[in-house]
Design a binder for these strands. Structure first.
Lengths: 150, 150
DNA sequence: GTCAATCAGGATAGAATTATCCTTTTCAAT
DNA sequence: ATTGAAAAGGATAATTCTATCCTGATTGAC
């Protein structure tokens, strides 16, 4: 309803990495398998997250991806600016190219406060918080529970 | 950010019709010109709105589209169910196929109340209300103001 | 009945998004 | 050095969404 698949994959992957021991590179193929998303496609997304300075990547043996220092405090809004592009915050619900307080669509006045709440939530939720929620076991990142490892 | 172009066109067109004198069929080509959207594409959307029982269509000379009786009280949610398909209300923010109170993504708990606010707004806004807002001159349906007719 | 204007609907095209494939580069272990 | 495993990145394919085109059916005016 709101986010592109690309954004969803990006967020899922980042949260997953945030749940893993920091400093140990996580393989793209592991992430894709865990999240059950196409790994070649995810690889492209990972690249752009590297370019967006959220991740480090390491090639070769012992390669993989790690969060950059401080990236645990990245909020969803920052991620979405990378994946959806700048200015996704300015979209008019009804699709007008310009829709501001000065010249507005008929939904503008009532939509604006709700949109602000949405953005506030996206800004408040960080990878750290979300990863903690997942690690606690109360929430999950994937559709199916994973096999327990012995 | 939220709605497909198809949904935006549909809502715009319906509001526009609701601003016109009832009973007088409105031409697809007039609507498209007014809204500045592709008329052949809009025609397809109009067809589906007819099938969804929101509009009557009339062929031939004096043809066009009219709101069905009572359709002024249609709310945006009803329109979106036609254009986005049933079940667009159930989408998980992070893209999980199932995400409910029982088994939830880490955004679920905080997202749910906001989503409910969004839906409440969409349900509260009817074509009638939106058309009135446009007719008042305070809000507009299109990017550019239209030439005043003498 | 003829004509012009309109919607209905099928076929097709274009664009954007999502997904796959393959080659190159990098790196650590040996 | 060689090898194997990994990301980088370019090319391409598949799918979905948006848009266009064309033919046929319907209707009112004449």
């Amino acid at each position: 309803m709101i986010l592109s698949r690309t954004s969803q994959y990006a967020i899922q992957a980042l949260i997953y990495i945030a749940t893993q021991p920091p400093g140990e590179p996580v393989l793209n193929r592991k992430i894709a398998a865990y999240l059950n998303v196409p790994s070649a496609y995810l690889a492209k997304i990972m690249q752009s997250l590297c370019k967006g300075n959220l991740l480090y990547s390491f090639r070769g043996r012992l390669g993989g991806f790690c969060l950059r220092e401080g990236a645990e405090s990245t909020d969803l809004m920052q991620i979405l600016i990378l994946t959806e592009g700048q200015g996704f915050t300015e979209d008019c619900l009804l699709g007008l190219k310009v829709c501001s307080d000065a010249t507005a669509c008929p939904m503008h006045a009532k939509w604006k406060p709700i949109k602000q709440k949405v953005f506030a939530l996206l800004t408040e939720q960080t990878l750290e918080k979300l990863a903690t929620a997942v690690v606690s076991g109360k929430y999950r990142l994937t559709d199916l529970p994973h096999a327990v490892l012995f």
